[in-house]
Amino acid sequence: MSMHRCALTSLTVASHLLFLNSFALAQACDPAEILRTDILKYDSNITVMMADVRNRVSSHQSNDQQQGGFSYSGIKLNYGEEKWLSDYISEQADFRLSQQEAISVLKATLSESSVRAYEACLGSQKLVISIPDLAGSDSDILVDVKWTPDGVDVPASKLNLNISGGELIEGDQKSRFERGEARIFKIHRANLFEPLSIKATIRGDRAEVYLPRKPNFKVVFAELYDPPMSQGPHGIRRGVGDNTTDLAKYDLCVISEEGILIPSTAYMQKDIVDGQGGRAFADVDHATASGHKVCGTVGASSGGAFSLVQITARLRVFEVKVVKLPDTQ
């Protein structure tokens, strides 16, 4: 079956990262529960979607496949479709987030009010590492380290800053911190396509931040049709002469050969002339729809040889493909 691809929308995948406190504490305090509204505002951000899926799977929140998910340029996905798309991207682009990276990405979506709620959930953080938004796509990033230990008469203590996937180019990674002090360090990433981890320790207080590698792919959306847009819609005409009143049906199917379909976007474009009411129909078969194939049925019948009932219809479904990009800065 031939299909026409049109209205392509390319989404360059960018990682929006802010900061991560202690990973052990972040596991106990799930950011997704606090920032659900914030997450849904991140339209067209594949990295945030994959982080959300990763976190839900890890926290066993993935039972309801039909619950609300993300949207991309107006295309709404449920969680089941998020999971399909995330798995597809992982397979096609070899791009996967660790749980530490997922927590970091999710926390990056926090609004100012949600940041306060998240920190309240975590409890008092003694050592915090913060980095600017969009740090995942920058070669040079500024890292802020702040230490606020318990107690008042806490002596100045040495920082141990360990970096993997980057190089400290400004600041002393073994400098001494006073209580309540914050310092900024500059880190250079020679290769953005390698992950970065930053671990800080002062007097037993720990903080960690993880940045995934820069994605070397983009996601492309296309509309697929049956019949293709180069042809007219499929039509059924009943009640225009003898032996033309019985029900006639025809199946339309869209099949993805190169990507994955988003079943919830399936839509029957139809035009009906039916003076008898209810004798013409065009419905999507959602029960059998999958990421590979979505079908629907067009049908019409007439109550009399000269009672015209006719319908024309076309099935439309959105397909998603991953297009790899060269590993260049």
Rank of each mutant, 00 (worst) to 15 (best):
S73H: 15
V57C: 02
A24T: 15
D38Y: 00
K107G: 08
D242C: 07
A200S: 06
S90M: 15
I311P: 00
E33Y: 10
H292E: 12
D205P: 04
S264Q: 08
F221N: 05
E101C: 12
H188N: 15
N191F: 05
K214Q: 14
K321A: 13
G303I: 08
L211V: 00
G69E: 03
A108N: 08
R96F: 06
L25R: 14
D138G: 01
K218Y: 06
S62L: 13
G277H: 11
I141L: 15
W84N: 13
E208S: 13
A287R: 11
Y250K: 08
S113K: 12
S124R: 10
D153P: 01
E82C: 15
R314V: 00
S302V: 13
L134Y: 13
V220G: 02
S73G: 15
N45L: 03
V209E: 07
T47N: 12
H286E: 06
E81Y: 03
S175K: 00
G259R: 09
E119P: 03
L40S: 00
V57G: 02
A305M: 14
S111N: 08
K214I: 05
S124T: 10
K76G: 03
S44T: 13
L192R: 11
D271W: 02
G151F: 08
D87E: 15
L40F: 06
P31H: 03
A24S: 15
P31T: 02
Q173P: 03
I129R: 09
D271M: 04
L97Q: 07
F217W: 12
N216T: 08
V273T: 15
S164W: 03
S197Y: 05
P228Y: 06
L8M: 13
H4Q: 10
S230L: 06
E319S: 00
N45P: 03
E258L: 07
T244F: 07
D285F: 00
Q65C: 05
L308N: 03
D242N: 11
N243V: 05
Q100N: 05
R314Q: 03
A222T: 06
S130N: 13
I187F: 10
I141N: 12
P195L: 12
P132Y: 01
R237K: 14
W147C: 08
P155W: 02
G241Y: 11
I34N: 09
D285I: 02
P149H: 01
S124P: 01
G304Q: 03
I260T: 05
K293L: 11
S301V: 07
E82Y: 13
V317C: 01
A93P: 14
G296E: 02
E81W: 01
I255G: 00
W84S: 08
R176W: 09
D153V: 07
A102D: 08
G74A: 10
L159K: 05
P263R: 05
L308D: 01
E81P: 00
S71F: 05
E170C: 10
V143R: 04
A51H: 09
G180S: 14
R54D: 03
S10K: 15
P326A: 10
A120Y: 08
S157H: 07
G235P: 02
R279M: 00
G304H: 04
L77K: 04
Q231Y: 05
A289F: 00
T47L: 04
T148K: 08
K214P: 04
V128R: 09
I103W: 11
T288E: 09
R179E: 06
